[in-house]
Design a protein around this nucleic acid. Structure first.
Length: 457
RNA sequence: GACCCGUUCGUCUAGAGGCCUAGGACACUGGCCUUUCACGCCGGCAACACGGGUUCGAAUCCCGUACGGGUCGCCA
């Protein structure tokens, strides 16, 4: 049997971080089994669904490399089909028209809540001839006794007594299908074999199964994954910072880091931490998923991001340092050489231009507050001497290091006498990678210009 | 309230009765390296929610308690 999974977000905003993980798990499971991973937009609630939100979700999925196979299905477009199924269930006697008004329902619900009972519509077994002339909903007839057990891929065997299940509404008073009906019909029609979703749907599954059984369809395999919580353990909400996947892109996180982090959040493969997409595909399975909700930890995401930044190519890093701007060939070459060293101290993509900005041009860089104190009169005197003695030709870092060693000996100086002040004058900063490597990459002309510019006294 | 699910270091987790004086990662922290910062390396802190069983032996199995989460919509 070929595996078919789906990610079915409701387009009420952006791609939620929890949704992104659900999508990832669906994607991974499908790929693992050589199956298909589909997308369905649950836009049944037209009032809350917007085209912008649909676009935002696609944007988020695309960023993470989790586009669905083929075009996304729009649930709202399938309403006629959903209604047909409800009619069929009505005809077969599995469903009934319920004429309860919202007010009556509210009262019954309150009553049921206090007694711990489920609500039961009096119309379930009423004589159709007594039906009033007013809008009605179509409800599924739940079995009155017995129980249902779901063998969930993550939760294991879960059993619920039918006596706790109320007759779910499939068609609203205005004739439109509800989510409960729509998911079931769509999953069936799309041939979904494995339903992987948040465990907030676990209880719904028992209701949905009854529609499936009433239609005589095959029940899919379920895997209800635990939700993600905020750092304080509470449900993820706005006060926990960013909720949307793309907000993390804007903050400077890499999609690979995000996927790796999301994968590790609630799923594990022994002690493995850095997991490539290929490994994830070959290792992923429900047995590695924990049952308890996990807390979102930005620190760990950040450390993973730092790792993935370091693994980027020098060319890609150079592009990031330039923030997409054009630069002359010698600058590109310089940045490509320096990039790995810059990457070593970056945690977010936005750190790169801050760290390597001084190398993106040949002008004299401004001194920041930490660098200024390093350039006192003594330091500047040494730097002028250094600039005067420096040979004209370009040198490799090794050659410069050798020359510098000799120069220091001649002048009876130590590296600490020239390193910090040279760094300050040439980069404008107190902290950078190896100054010898930087100096070599800048070349004598730029070095002299910057020393003179920043040591005018 | 009813019904479902869960509970190992601060956080993510390894762990499927003896391999556990509980391992890894992030965070925190001591040190080394060094021209600064970072990386790296070495070390430290720190957990089986609680109480009963079962067993020669339990983080692992059973029961209860506490706490946390989820669901109970003509929302999805």
């Amino acid at each position: 049997m070929s595996v078919v999974t789906r990610f079915a977000p409701s387009p009420t905003g952006f791609l939620h971080i929890g949704g992104a993980r659900t999508a990832l798990f669906n994607y991974l499971f499908a790929r693992r089994h050589g199956g298909r991973y589909l997308l369905r937009i649950e836009d049944t609630d037209l009032e809350r669904s917007t085209p912008e939100a649909v676009a935002a979700i696609h944007d988020g999925l695309n960023w993470l490399g989790l586009d669905g196979d083929g075009d996304a299905v729009s649930q709202s477009a399938r309403a006629p089909r959903h209604i047909d199924v409800a009619e069929e269930l009505l005809k077969a006697g599995h469903a009934y028209r319920c004429y309860l008004t919202p007010e009556e329902l509210a009262a019954m619900r309150e009553e049921a809540r206090s007694t711990g009972q489920k609500i039961t519509s009096p119309w379930r077994d009423a004589d159709p001839a007594t039906a009033p002339d007013r809008p009605y909903t179509v409800r599924l007839k739940m079995p009155l006794d017995g129980e249902t057990t779901i063998s969930d891929g993550v939760q294991g065997d879960v059993t619920v007594a039918h006596s706790t299940l109320d007759d779910l509404v499939m068609l609203r008073g205005d004739g439109s299908p509800t989510y409960m009906l729509a998911v079931v019909v769509d999953d069936h029609d799309m041939g979904i074999t494995h339903v992987i979703r948040g465990d907030d749907h676990l209880n719904n599954a028992f209701r949905q199964i009854k529609i499936i059984e009433a239609m005589g369809w095959e029940t899919p395999h379920y895997a209800h994954i635990p939700l993600i919580h905020g750092a304080d353990g509470a449900k993820l909400s706005k006060r926990h910072g960013a909720l949307s996947a793309t907000a993390y892109r804007d903050m400077g996180f890499l999609p690979d880091a995000m996927c790796n982090y999301l994968l590790k959040l609630g799923w594990s493969h022994g002690d493995d931490e850095i997991i490539s997409r290929d490994d994830a595909i070959s290792w992923f399975g429900f047995d590695g998923i924990g049952k308890a909700p996990a807390r979102f930890d930005t620190d760990k995401l950040t450390s993973l991001n730092a790792h993935y930044i370091r693994s980027m190519t020098p060319e890609a890093l150079a592009g990031l340092i330039l923030e997409g701007k054009d630069a002359p060939a010698h600058i590109i070459e310089r940045l490509t050489m320096l990039a790995p060293a810059f990457a070593e101290r970056a945690q977010l993509l936005g750190d790169l231009p801050k760290i390597g900005g001084f190398a993106t041009h040949d002008d004299v860089p401004a001194l920041d507050d930490d660098a200024k104190p390093l350039l006192d009169d003594d330091a500047c005197a040494r730097l002028h001497q250094f600039a005067a003695d420096l040979p004209d030709g370009d040198m490799t870092p090794e050659e410069l290091k050798t020359w510098l060693g000799g120069w220091l000996d001649q002048n009876n100086l130590k590296m600490r006498d020239i390193g910090p002040c040279l760094r300050a004058a040439v980069t404008g900063m107190k902290q950078t990678p190896d100054i010898v490597m930087i100096a070599a990459s800048l070349g004598p002309a730029v070095l002299r210009k910057r020393i003179e510019g920043n040591c005018k006294k």
